[in-house]
Design a protein around this nucleic acid. Structure first.
Lengths: 348, 348
DNA sequence: CTGTTAGCGCTTTCAG
DNA sequence: CTGAAAGCGCTAACAG
């Protein structure tokens, strides 16, 4: 590595023969500086390639023009949020900083305290779980924690979406449907399970014992659960996972086990991240308007900062997108043809 | 908005009945603090929910554990880079900050100076154009500027990729192929044009006058150029665009003009961003391993920071992905059947 | 109009 | 083992 020439305000001041205070005024466009001085200083700034140190200035100023979007990690879901949020932030005069908190417990609070103290003027939090409403800076949450004392929130209609997905499976002839749940602290995960249960109940189909599982949205955990489920003699003919990433992982496990999708097993996800379309076969899923949710969250944040009154909860519609990962259950596992000998039917 | 209780180190110190210096030592795990004091202070930290202010600490410390990925804006291309970079950063003990510079001239230098002064210990820059090798912190560039004095770099084999794409079109029977170039300052854009020209020359096919254009990767510019091209009497039967976003835009324009893809016009892109698969019809494109490039860039940065010797330029392979946007040219525009009357053949 | 001064919250010598 | 004091780079009164 080359040495590092880091030019600070004092360097500019020295070279221009003025004080740092004057340079600061020029940089921030404050009144009370002679035109000549302004031009002189700007020349030196140009020449030296000076650009202010964010830490230092943000430490001193009451407000910055930086907004944050705080996520647990940069995966497909949060990436879509970021794209949406960025599109509105970029046209608002604010800069955007996306930060991944490292997916450890309490990342929301930590990220917010570390950046929010001074660096950023506000933040949108993606799927936060531990956080109360009293924050250092204005905050809006996307798809947050299940519970009271809520932050201003954007989410999607998880309940209806899950119902539609389940109904789709049922209409195809499935009855042995397993549900791979998400993180039970998240309101949305809760509602997806509720939607699933409701649709099953409405159709009068009992949920098999052991078919209601939790993956915490962790692909590895999903793989493990799927494997266990699919190795049972009375395996499910369909899996509905509470997000796309775990659905795709479950699909991979099925294929490793020699089952083909959708001939032997149907799989439905939730979210419609770009990867859902890329999966082989393309994943049937419940679409959430992810980018639009990110954008709406950013709009709400901007309003909050500007002091504009508005609704503090926006719920967006979801929509079932049928692609190639769902079909009729395999003949030998259909409930209609076999009545009592399901326990002895084996898969491949 | 609620008031903002922001807890600082002094608050912890006061509540614990010690000095800020001691709290600082505890927070940073320095030696020379009594076990009891450590526990006492940690208790208070827990209780108050204290988390250090990043600006303040980074201002004082020589190094932080934060890495940056600096992009012009959060679009599909950079989003893929970020995902890849994040996957390796997150397992390295560093935190990741992604910053969009706002797509104005000189964003690379400005972002780097503002964050690199103190906030971040190193950065990967996505498609930077103005920047010399003498930077404040270790930096690696992904798909950078065309020119000498280069930073440590990750890029993909644009030349071969462009050749393959062009050959694909030629093998389908196309000869009237237009090329929508990118940003000529980027090395990659340069090489894509070179690959196109080379493949055409090898096949002995002349490039029609006006068929070699530049879009600067701007969708609007691409739309304009495509419209002009497709309105000509001697319109191209295929368009090869230097990235997916402009290819998709060109495809839309064709459809607005009543041409169907691929029956009337074949379109090929470059990158294979997720949107390429989502396009209607799915876009034939040259795949760059975007996430892997981001990951490799981050690995290189980590090595740079750790002082590990290694190659400063990694070039990844590209691969043609044939999807639904390419096919044989329409009969009436085939060179084989018509010899000299192309100028009078009209489109729809 | 310009410079001097006093911090922002934190880390780090260096005395007690 | 602990705390007082000096400053990181910058901004905001306040005097000159």
């Amino acid at each position: 590595m080359e040495p590092a020439p880091r030019v600070k305000m004092a360097d500019v001041a020295a070279k221009a023969g003025v004080s740092v205070a004057t340079v600061s005024k020029v940089v921030n466009g404050r009144y009370g500086v002679a035109k000549e001085t302004v031009e002189l200083v700007q020349g030196v700034i140009e020449e030296l390639g000076y650009a202010g140190n964010l830490s230092a200035s943000s430490l001193r100023m009451p407000q910055t023009n930086m907004l944050g979007i705080l996520v647990a990690s940069f995966e497909p879901f949060s990436a879509e949020m970021i794209k949406g949020a960025a599109s509105v932030a970029e046209s608002s005069g604010y800069e955007l900083l996306a930060h991944s908190g490292g997916d450890t417990h309490g990342w929301e609070r930590r990220s917010l305290a570390r950046l929010g103290g001074t660096l950023i003027a506000g933040a949108v939090l993606v799927t936060p779980t531990v956080l109360d409403a009293r924050t250092v800076v204005p905050v809006v949450a996307v798809d947050p924690h299940y519970g009271p004392n809520r932050l201003p929130t954007i989410d999607a209609d998880s309940f209806t979406g899950a119902e539609r997905a389940t109904e789709h499976l049922i209409s195809l002839g499935h009855t042995r449907i397993a549900f791979l749940g998400g993180r039970s602290e998240l309101d949305s995960a809760h509602l997806r399970e509720a939607g699933f249960r409701n649709a099953m109940a409405e159709a009068g189909i009992p949920i098999e014992s052991g078919f209601l599982r939790e993956t915490r949205y962790q692909p590895d955990r999903a793989a493990e659960v799927a494997r266990e489920l699919l190795l049972r003699d009375d395996r499910p003919t369909a899996i509905f996972a509470a997000n796309d990433v775990t659905a795709i992982r479950a699909m991979e496990v099925a294929q490793e086990l020699g089952l083909s999708v959708p001939e032997d097993l149907s799989v439905v996800g939730f979210d419609d991240v770009p990867d859902a379309t890329l999966a082989k076969p393309a994943l049937t899923t419940v679409r959430q308007p992810l980018q639009e949710m990110g954008a709406e969250a950013m709009r709400m944040l901007l309003d909050l900062i500007a002091g504009v009154e508005r609704e503090h909860h926006v719920r967006m519609a979801t929509e079932l997108v049928v692609r190639a990962s769902t079909g009729e259950p395999p003949l030998e596992l259909r409930p209609a043809s076999a009545a009592g000998d399901l326990a002895t039917a084996s898969a491949d």
